[in-house]
Each structure stands twice: as structure tokens, then as C-alpha cells.
């Protein structure tokens, strides 16, 4: 379970996040929806323990990330917005690197690698260097390195950006499967269809504040619109930055 309670973050005069509180429950997919510059990335960085909130706190499975970042991060898997990887490592070595950072060694390490490679159906590419990988293949490696240590919580930052239909489908299937296994999934996006199709709960942020919180249906009802996209525009009050 991921939780942030009344977090704010100011940089000089600028308030990036202003009193945000939300919870992402186990067995649910929670979406953070907001236009560019709404404070999504700052929120996530506070949750990872990279930035110190001006007020409030964030917890991962009840552990305060400010107080014990290293312990808290152990039950966290992160799927970043950019698939940065070392092109001189093979896919397997790349995943191994992240598994080792989570403390896996020896037989447990090998087992974890074999399992995640099989789960994501990437045996064919696992011993190739990642140089020249397609965006879809990179997505698989990135997802594998986020999941190899079987984290209870998974955070995805704009996961479907630049992915083709097949890769998006594969990612969605994986997320549903993880949700059914009881994982907690938090997912930031500005793609409406994505959020509508996947999320049990949507948190809409704009200008650093939460402007709505509920299931996609509830949000539509709240705004009196039929589609989530219209509801979103109505809720944040402008169509600025919604281009997906």
C-alpha cells in the first residue's frame, strides 16, 4: 500500500505540490491523472524518497520513506517514464543488476531472473545486448527490472508513452494479472483511454492540488459528462496541456 498524507513541496516561491493526500490500495490500480506540470513527477519523487516534502509524509507499506528510504524502497518496483538502459549489457544482465540491488543473490537470483523472463515471454531477447532494442522490447526489459524482486507495490510513470498497440496490450495484461495477485499499482498518466480502461480509482491533479478522487464512473457523474476525457477537462477547468 502506498500512501501520501498532506504532502506539499515548494521550490522557492513556486509551489509544485500543495497539500496532496491519497492512498493506493493493494489489489487495486490507482491512476494519477493530470496535465503536464501538474506536480505528478514531484509527487512520485517524494514517494520514492528522492525529494523531501515541505509538509506531510509518504509511506510504502506503512514505512515512512523519509525516515527509512532504503527499507521502504525494498517493496517498491518502479517503471520510469524513460527506458534508460545500458546498451552494453544484455537484457538478462540489465535485469540482474536491478535484482542484485534488491539483495537477490545466488540461486534465488537465478530463479527470479528465469521466472520474470518467462513471465514476460522474453527468452528470445534475454541474451542479446539491449543496443538496438525496439521500444516494445525496451518496455519489457524495464518492466522486468521493476518486477524481478516481486515487489508488493508497483509505480508506473507514463508507462504507455511511445508504445505500439501490442506492447500496450501486453503491459495492460501484466498489470491486470498483478492486480489480481493483490499487488498495489500506482500509475501516472495523461492518456484518458488508458486510465479509463485500467484504473479502479482515479486521482486528478492540477496545479499541485487534488481536484477530484474516485472511480472513473464517479468522476464522469461528478462532472456530468459521458466520457472521462470530457469529465477531466471539466474538472481541471481548462483544456490546457491535455493533448495526449
Amino acid at each position: 500500500m502506498l500512501k501520501v498524507d498532506n504532502i506539499s513541496k515548494t521550490f522557492g516561491d513556486f509551489t509544485a505540490v500543495d497539500g496532496v493526500s491519497f492512498e493506493a490500495k493493494d489489489g487495486e490500480i490507482t491512476g494519477i491523472l493530470g496535465p503536464n506540470g501538474a506536480g505528478k513527477t514531484t509527487c512520485l519523487r517524494i514517494l520514492y524518497g528522492l525529494l523531501k516534502p515541505t509538509t506531510g509524509y509518504a509511506t510504502i507499506d506503512g514505512i515512512d520513506v523519509q525516515k527509512s528510504a532504503i527499507t521502504a524502497r525494498k517493496s517498491l518496483g518502479i517503471f520510469p517514464d524513460q527506458f534508460g538502459m545500458s546498451e552494453r549489457l544484455t537484457a538478462r544482465e540489465q535485469i540482474e543488476y536491478f535484482a542484485q540491488m534488491h539483495g537477490l543473490t545466488g540461486a534465488a537470483l537465478k530463479e527470479a531472473l528465469d521466472r520474470v523472463i518467462k513471465d514476460l515471454d522474453m527468452a528470445e531477447i534475454s541474451d542479446r545486448r539491449t543496443e538496438g532494442f525496439s521500444q516494445g522490447q525496451r518496455m519489457k526489459v524495464t518492466l522486468a527490472q521493476a518486477l524481478v524482486h516481486r515487489p508488493k507495490n508497483l509505480v508506473l510513470d507514463e508507462p504507455t508513452r511511445g508504445l505500439d498497440v501490442m506492447s500496450t496490450r501486453l503491459l495492460r495484461e501484466q498489470l491486470r494479472k498483478l492486480k489480481d495477485e493483490g499487488h498495489c499499482i500506482l500509475f501516472s498518466s495523461h492518456v484518458m483511454q488508458e486510465v479509463a480502461a485500467l484504473c479502479d480509482r482515479v486521482i486528478v491533479v492540477a496545479k499541485g492540488k487534488i481536484v477530484a478522487n474516485g472511480s472513473p464512473e464517479e468522476l464522469c457523474k461528478l462532472a456530468g459528462k459521458d466520457s472521462l476525457e470530457d469529465a477531466f477537462v471539466a474538472i481541471i477547468g481548462s483544456d490546457e496541456g491535455v493533448a495526449a
Partner: peptide, 17 residues
């Protein structure tokens, strides 16, 4: 180079000092 490849942030988010 690692920063340019956008790998650094993810590494800093891992449970390692």
C-alpha cells in the same frame, strides 16, 4: 553518460545507499 541515458534517477530510487 548514465545520466544522459536516463538511468541515474532509477538507480537512485533503488534500495541501495
Amino acid at each position: 553518460g548514465e545520466r544522459e541515458r536516463h538511468s541515474l534517477e532509477l538507480i537512485l530510487c533503488q534500495p541501495v545507499p
